[in-house]
Design a binder for these strands. Structure first.
Lengths: 109, 109
DNA sequence: TTGACAGGACACCGTTTGGTGTCTTATCAT
DNA sequence: ATGATAAGACACCAAACGGTGTCCTGTCAA
């Protein structure tokens, strides 16, 4: 259905707190260029760029060049796999959520 | 509220496919001893034990000694953090799920 | 009581990870 | 035309990861 050309495991991609922060930042705007993202972190541009590459490999981010800057955009849909995975186990931490889980499963179909 | 003594990031703990497989196995039974878990994998006992240690550090697993064997048990509740995290982004991959998300948020309180 | 089994504790190893710095190229503004 | 900015492409590095094998101890069964 959607893009399954991800070379990188989504669970692996979201394991790093810096990358989750990047996702959070990208969720707050249409597009953000690398230098602007870099400004939000203590680390250098190269490191941030590497994290974005990993997110790209997982299909969580797309990029396009505009002038001299590279702008990044969030594509959250691969996170659905995480959602599907975790919802299964929500039965195990609370029983009164099981009604909601059934709702979710219905909606998935 | 619940145990927050986790030395290890939950997202990090579930990043490895072997560890997700361990969680899956432990979800299917009350308790499973190490040697029995090891039998399900190709790798050796030491490796499986290390993975279980990581899961333990994330609070996802508890263990108890019974005779000469160490039995492991799933504690899924730290996965709630993952659920909370991913639910936020479900707005970004589908708009007709937002009703369900509101349901989830209500239930969380 | 002897042997087999379960598993903790190490030491070890190759690869990956997460960062750095530097060099170069392309682009924009003056 | 010149200088500053954006970022790709590397080389490099220490530390963590994901495995291995070995040794030792405790426990169960014959």
């Amino acid at each position: 259905m959607s893009e399954n050309n991800q070379l990188r495991d989504v669970f692996d991609a979201i394991a790093d707190p810096t990358r989750r922060q990047l996702i959070r930042l990208l969720a707050g705007a249409e597009e953000i260029p690398l230098h602007e993202l870099t400004a939000k972190f203590q680390m250098g541009r190269t490191a941030v760029s590497k994290h974005l590459t990993i997110l790209k490999e997982a299909g969580l981010v797309t990029d396009r060049k505009v002038g001299r800057e590279t702008r990044f955009r969030l594509n959250a849909s691969p996170l659905r796999e995480v959602q599907d995975w975790v919802v299964f186990y929500s039965n195990f931490w609370s029983t009164n959520l099981s009604r909601l889980n059934r709702l979710l499963e219905e909606e998935e179909e």
